[in-house]
Amino acid sequence: MHSRRDFLQKLTASAITLPFLPKATSLDEFYSKPYDGPVLRVAIMGLGGYGTRVAEAMQSSKMAKLVGVISGTPSKIKDWQSKYKIPEKNCYNYENFDQIKNNADIDAVYVITPNALHHDQVIRVAKAGKHVICEKPMAINAKEGQEMVDACKKANVKLLVGYRMHFEPHTLEIVRMRKAGELGKITFFQGLSGFKIGDPSQWRMNKQLAGGGSMMDIGIYAINGSRYMVGEEPIWVTAQETKTDPQKFKEGVDETITFQLGFPGGAVASCLSSYNINNLDRFFLTGDNGFAELFPATGYGPIKGRTHKGELNQPIVTHQTVQMDEMAAIILQGKQPIVPVDGEEGLKDLKIIDAIYAAVKSGKKENLKL
């Protein structure tokens, strides 16, 4: 049995460098010294496989602390209370978590539930006056995503999306090289994201919960990656769907989609998202003067890469630890990440996903306005 969590299962070791943590030039320096600055107190909503991974990684965070849980499963709440020393007053279920508005010990909620639940849950958290971190995809379509962005703005709370790769050192080195002109004029990006999914009864194979299939789950990495690797927003998309097993992949649950993106500077992207092809996790970026490749590109680690200058030797990081410390700095100190992780960033990906599904149906080029 395989799932995305199996596909991305290798949790990595501590890192050495990181661009944004306050008053530190390296993770070694940051984590070796006492920290007495502000701490983001986080409740996790959704105590499944990835919620567990985030919770474990947060034990090494200095600027973010797990202080609460929200779950529909009482036994999980009890287990987490015991393991992470979470007080009873910081435990909620899906019916009563609006009451976090009265809990001064919780600053933010990390929503890690099935895609179709994000919209209502994020809006409820915002109305309760708490900052929100939402797993990707932020919603199941751009309309819902816009409503989430608007709700958080109205409530004057931050909305961030769980784009852990935006803080990954190999990724950021390629972004740096591209920005510095070391690759020359960018001409092409390839993003391959996929694996063979197992249990057909899991929520990711349920259109009502997932909002789609492989595109919503794993294809979003190639979509998002194309944007921060090329350094522009795409202006058109074309797409084609292949379905070899309609019994397993029901109506509305895409098995494999290939899609192409065009960028204003002339670069093009060729990408693939699949729930039925293994050994796909590769980004390739090329320009007039050089290239960069990540393979694996988005797994939990270790990320590996090379460029026309040789192998990339950036530190190996525990992505979720770095992500939570960086997001704490964004929320508490107004830090500006190199690659955005806010709700507007998530909304752009949703607009592209909407256009990809439209292009599959129409067979035509769909224009994008992000």
Rank of each mutant, 00 (worst) to 15 (best):
G191T: 05
S362H: 06
E311L: 11
E88C: 01
A210L: 05
V360S: 00
P200D: 07
K10F: 12
I218C: 05
G265C: 07
F249C: 04
H119R: 08
G37E: 13
I133W: 06
P19F: 06
R227L: 06
F249G: 02
S3N: 14
H308R: 10
I331M: 11
V111H: 07
K127M: 01
Q240G: 09
E173H: 09
A355T: 06
T307G: 04
R4E: 12
I70C: 15
I235G: 05
L272W: 13
Y163S: 03
E88D: 13
Q240W: 00
S71Y: 09
S32A: 11
G334Y: 04
H131C: 02
M205F: 14
A55E: 06
D79R: 13
C271A: 02
H2G: 10
S201H: 13
L117D: 12
N279M: 01
Q121M: 12
N313C: 04
A142Y: 05
F291K: 13
A269F: 07
P200M: 14
K369N: 14
S201C: 07
E56D: 10
M327R: 06
F189N: 08
Q247K: 15
K364V: 11
I316F: 02
F7T: 09
N289T: 11
H170L: 08
Q208K: 15
G346N: 01
K130G: 01
N206W: 05
T318W: 07
V125R: 02
G49E: 14
D6L: 03
E95W: 04
T286N: 06
I174W: 07
D36I: 04
Q208T: 10
A222S: 15
Q121W: 01
E168P: 00
M148P: 09
P38T: 00
S14Q: 15
V317W: 08
G129K: 03
M165F: 03
V322S: 09
E344K: 05
V67C: 06
P169H: 07
P74I: 08
E344M: 09
P315G: 15
Q202D: 15
R176E: 08
E29I: 07
A142Q: 01
N367P: 10
P200Y: 05
E95L: 08
V157Q: 00
C152R: 02
A155Q: 10
M138H: 03
T258L: 09
S201Y: 00
M1D: 11
Y50G: 05
T242Q: 15
V237C: 09
G301L: 14
D325A: 12
S193P: 00
R124A: 09
G51T: 07
R4N: 05
P114A: 05
G211S: 03
K248H: 11
V317R: 00
F283W: 11
A269P: 03
Q190P: 05
N115S: 12
K101T: 07
I123E: 01
Q247F: 08
K143S: 14
E344Q: 10
T187N: 10
